[in-house]
């Protein structure tokens, strides 16, 4: 049984500078897989490439065995990948409800309203604010909304780029509770994080990425946490 997401020898470049220098990794069906690494390692570039925003120079990306390399973003969303982007969470002048509907952009079925109802049950705070402009929500609520919106596309795989970025510790804990809950509901999650401590608590598998390459792959506990944290923040000694 092959993995849900298979990335092989992926190279993405900005002009002549290669941000990804042949990345290979897997995300198993139903797992939380975490990617850790210092700033500038290429984590966001990898997310953007998987989501189709950036076109890879070479290599391959397969979703559930299907080749999706180089497809445009709308085809990737249609294929079942949803991205919760970093720093670009919500449409600020649209209401919470409209933001959720935006997540169902490609859906044509009749269960959109029912899905919104279910998400409101899961995130009661969003329900209370459903008519409010999304820009007026707190940082944690916006992150919640972004996750809920991504779920509206009923993805096979949820990509999350630094969901804890800029949030207070208590809010970060809440976001990770949500991630664990989603995992228990069977959602496959590929998570990019700098908060190694939280990420290692929830992930079944993690990768370390430094300077455009995967430098470690294993289960939490395979590497001492302080070692992971050191490399996730600072890069390995030889770098």
């Amino acid at each position: 049984m092959s993995a849900l997401l298979e990335i092989r020898q992926l190279v993405t470049a900005y002009g002549k500078i290669e941000a990804l220098k042949g990345v290979t990794l897997d995300v198993e069906q139903g797992s939380i897989t975490c990617l850790l690494g210092p700033n500038g390692a290429g984590k966001t570039t990898l997310m953007m490439t998987v989501a189709g925003i950036l076109r890879p120079k070479s290599g391959s990306i397969r979703l559930a065995g299907e080749e999706i390399t180089g497809r445009p973003p709308h085809a990737i969303v249609a294929g079942g990948i949803a991205l919760v982007p970093e720093n670009r969470l919500v449409f600020p002048n649209m209401s919470v409800l409209e933001n959720l509907q935006a997540g169902a952009y490609q859906r044509r079925d009749r269960e959109i309203e029912a899905d919104i109802g279910k998400l409101f049950e899961r995130f009661p705070r969003l329900k209370e604010r459903s008519g409010q402009n999304a820009g007026t929500l707190s940082g944690g609520e916006q992150q919640m909304l972004a996750v809920a919106r991504a779920l509206m596309s009923r993805p096979k795989l949820l990509l999350m780029d630094e969901p804890s970025l800029g949030l207070a510790p208590l809010v970060v804990e809440e976001i990770f509770r949500i991630i664990v809950q989603l995992h228990q509901d069977g959602v496959s999650i590929f998570l990019v994080e700098q908060n190694a401590h939280m990420a290692l608590k929830v992930a079944q598998h993690f990768y370390l990425m430094e300077q455009g390459k995967v430098t470690f792959s294993g289960t939490p506990g395979a590497l001492a946490e302080d070692e992971v944290i050191r490399r996730a923040y600072l890069g390995s000694a030889k770098a």
């Binding site: 925003i53 973003p73 709308h74 670009r88 002048n93 649209m94």
Partner: peptide, 11 residues
């Protein structure tokens, strides 16, 4: 509001 975010959502 945000063409890049719209693109990520499949527009």
């Amino acid at each position: 509001e945000d063409p890049e975010l719209a693109r990520m959502l499949g527009v």
